[in-house]
Amino acid sequence: MISYTEKESNRTLIVLSAVVLIAVLVDLFLIFQFAPEERSMGHVQRIFYFHVPSAWISFLAFFVVFVNSGLYLWKRDRKYDLLASTSAEIGVIFATLVLITGPIWGRPVWNTWWEWSPRLTLFLVLWFIYIAYLMLRSFVDEEEKAARFSAVFGIVGFVDVPIVYLSIRLWRDIHPSPVIAGGQNSGLHPDMKIAFFFSLFTFTVLFFLMLLHRLRVERTAIAVRELKRQMAY
């Protein structure tokens, strides 16, 4: 039975890897060749095609954490815990990308490395919440307890996000931010739109590929730990 599911997941992995490989190549072409240069910001605007999809993927990842945390507490099936924790790791990676690409974009455009804009601030908070989530998991010795605690934190953390955003936005209102030349979604050139949405698609399939790989690694690690535990007597 184990070998059957292994085979199944191998096939899925190969297909998905191929899709991601092609998508990434096409995406790079679209971003650097196909999409026109932005008039006021120049080439640096192309970071937009990485920045925004990264943000979208981290939201998706943290939503996956939230859903699977709830499912874990309800069903007590370890697979939900695995999905939640691996998704949190990937979410943190993409949130980190958001926090790196943001300043790179912001430096030439806003003339500052860090701007307490509501969205960037929100991502900083998100990043802290899910770093705390991962730390919590590694600081609890029993695996079952780690799963329960992090599931609770995964739910609380996600529910908190809208309130965090609300408070940050209100806080920004009294410290007005510099006017950003051209809103991100206002008057996007049709070719830019194509590149953007394809980029979104590429990042999404990449997310699922990473999730699958990470799940496989984690399952193997658990199997090894279990074998060691059985041999320890």
Binding site: R78, E143, E144, A147, I222, A223, E226, R229
Partner: peptide, 9 residues
Amino acid sequence: GLTKAFGHH
């Protein structure tokens, strides 16, 4: 038939 398990453990 009492069982307590976490994953395969």
